[in-house]
Amino acid sequence: MRTRGRWFNRFLGLYFALILLFLYGPILVMAVLSFQGPQGGMTFPMRGVGLHWWTRLFEVRASELQEAIIRTLLVAVETGAIAALFSVVIAFAYRRRLPGSSALLPMVLLALMTPGILLGLGMSLWWRILNFQPGHLALLGVHVVWALPFAFLVMIAVLNRFDPRVEESARDLGASEARTFFEIVLPIIWPGILSAALFGFTLSLNEFERSVLVTSQNTLPLQLWAMLTVQIIEPDLYALGTLTVLITFVIVAALFIPTVIGQFRRLGGATPPSEE
């Protein structure tokens, strides 16, 4: 890196620090403010420090939010599972270069470009025309549409790194298509599938604009929005926000990081022992 110069590297370091601050600053402020004293408000200055609002969150708010939390988690898990399953199937079809597969990528990505609020509106209109009260299913529908492109992109990246010769050698050794898939392909790509599912899970967990028009049963983000608009808001919402971020972070760290490390190792990040 000598040619780039020390100042350039310092600039890059500073730039990176600024980006981190930009990304995590708001979350940090929220976390700090959740430890306001009982008389504290929604902004600085801090009036004392304590767990007052955290206690209130668990003792008062929890029962209010319980239903929304359970509903949100349920939809998120379902979205993750469905998005992962669909994305695996689509990614395999894409890889096999089936007729029309060149149209597949833009088609799937189109769902990303569509404004979420319009998607939600369209969906709710559609159900109304069909004279059907979908509730949970409608919510799941928009969430899957939202999560699928991301999961698909993850799976394409995973399959790109997957050497097709490994599959061929399984067939070469006498394995049927099914055994090749379940005994060779699946164990190799499952960390990727898990990442795709996680992507779906987190996207669903925080989804707001697509959900707002399709359901009357509030998910957690909808419930929070409702609370923000109709109630006097208090720092216990900051505690809730901090908690949500923490939980998401723990899940991602527990599942996603080993995946990334695993992929990295498989790609040859680990040095092989020296030649015999």
């Binding site: 050497d163 010769r165 490994v166 061929e168 050698s169 399984a170 067939r171 070469d172 050794l173 006498g174 394995a175 049927s176 060779i184 164990p187 190799i188 498989r266």
Partner: peptide
């Protein structure tokens, strides 16, 4: 391929990594 009496040593060996 599965039923041919022929085996292949693939380029880059294509061992099952798991």
């Amino acid at each position: 391929a599965a039923q041919r009496d022929i085996s292949t040593v693939f380029q880059h060996y294509a061992l099952f990594p798991h």
